[in-house]
Design a protein around this nucleic acid. Structure first.
Lengths: 243, 243
DNA sequence: TCAAAAGTGTTGTGTGTACACCCATGT
DNA sequence: ACATGGGTGTACACACAACACTTTTGA
């Protein structure tokens, strides 16, 4: 995807050149989308990374992404490239920021529109049958060195996720449809990286009215079972401005 | 700028075609920057518009913008295109959002990275010697029909401006270096479109510590002169993530 | 009966809001 | 002396933070 497309552009547009900044002659920047995918797995907040098989940054890890195809909106492109590389689909996406500093891709002028995505811990079994072998979840506290400016993009995605979590109820995107209040609180604690008081948390969440008590309980271990809740209003979450 | 460049691209890349979607054959979207420039003038919040001289949307109003040149960061491009069209320079810029829905420009696939800018009412004498005749400030409550998806961009810029104003002290960018508390309060009222209590406003601003009392006063009319203040810390405002 | 997590209330502190009068100035 | 906007303090409501014990279950 990204790599082979850049190579084909380089071949078709400038066959005599083999250097880095081939496309800058045309003054037409290329545009990609890159996606920081978050999930919660094994009680850790993790991001999805793919190990590169080509230069530049060969063998380094990168976030998934690729070029925008004809007829796609930016958000559709982000969803489609993600599905091609990971098989996850129909997930929460929000545009983060456009990164376009000259030199961020050594081959050409590439502007990327970065997104972040949240996937439920229950739906993430779907990944790992991608084309590449080396694709995996990495704890955000222990990321390897990343290709391009992807470290900066991940850092910004994380900071956006934190602020969003304090203003809108997006935590549900990281949980299965039915969840306990303790599980929900754990999502907040992992993202905000701080302990939260159980009583205050429950009071705030319940009084906000965004939860529905599904009449069921969940047993886990040898102790009192927990009430299951679901999110009541998914319609308010879409923040896509470009449709 | 945008128009002549698209025309030259169309000529050079596809001389036999004279239709709208010339560049989509190459699947390479073009990238522009567009800027919503706000100021306060005559006790109104206004945005800068330029009347188009070409198709499409000829004679309609649009926000300033243009293509990204070689070697420019996105923010530099926004500042440069703005200066070329308006002569304002060194102003506050913040990236808003990337708009890239297919069809938003009928000629070609164009993705725009939108910015908003704030200019001081004292520095805005500089405009109006631009190349075009029809460039001017329009009250945000009485905008004409805008070209492309510019109305949506302006609306989003305004909503971003409101939320930024409640979280960070950017109002100073719309005022001269020295200002009175009443002038500052008026900026808040015009942007947030609501009356603010004078005592509560002054309490909050003063206790936040972001203002410095310059020892001077300002006389205006036949009444008690007002204290002048300036903003104490301009270093915390830059939100550019791409540098 | 024990272990382990679920569930529940009260009190203090700080932040935002509502509200009315005196002050300094030029004419 | 008056008209005009500049400048100030207090009381109430509400949101947030701190904090400890009882309940339910399976083993």
């Amino acid at each position: 995807m990204t790599d082979s497309f850049i190579q084909s552009i380089q071949r078709s547009k400038s066959p005599e050149s083999s250097t880095d900044t081939v496309l800058s002659e045309y003054e037409i920047p290329l545009v990609t989308v890159d996606i920081v995918v978050f999930t919660i797995q094994d009680d850790r907040l993790k991001a999805l990374l793919i190990q590169r098989k080509q230069e530049p940054f060969i063998h380094m890890w990168a976030i998934p992404g690729g070029f925008i195809h004809e007829g796609e909106t930016l958000e559709e492109a982000a969803g489609a490239r993600l599905q091609e590389e990971t098989n996850v689909h129909d997930i929460f996406l929000e545009q983060l920021y456009a990164f376009g500093k000259p030199g961020r891709d050594p081959r050409a002028r590439v502007i990327t529109v970065a997104y972040y995505a949240l996937v439920s811990s229950s739906s993430l079994k779907l990944e790992a049958h991608a084309n590449a072998e080396n694709i995996g979840w990495h704890c955000i506290t222990e990321l390897p060195d990343l290709a391009f400016d992807h470290r900066r993009i991940v850092d910004y995605a994380l900071s956006r996720l934190k602020t969003r979590l304090e203003s809108t109820p997006i935590a549900f995107q990281l949980l299965p449809e039915k969840f306990t209040l303790t599980e929900l609180q754990r999502v907040y604690e992992l993202i905000l990286e701080k302990k939260i008081d159980k009583r205050n948390f429950r009071k705030k969440i319940i009084s906000s009215g965004i939860l529905k008590d599904v009449g069921e309980t969940k047993m886990e271990g040898y102790h009192r079972p927990a009430q299951l809740y679901c999110f009541s209003d998914t319609s308010t979450l879409n923040a896509n401005l470009d449709k």
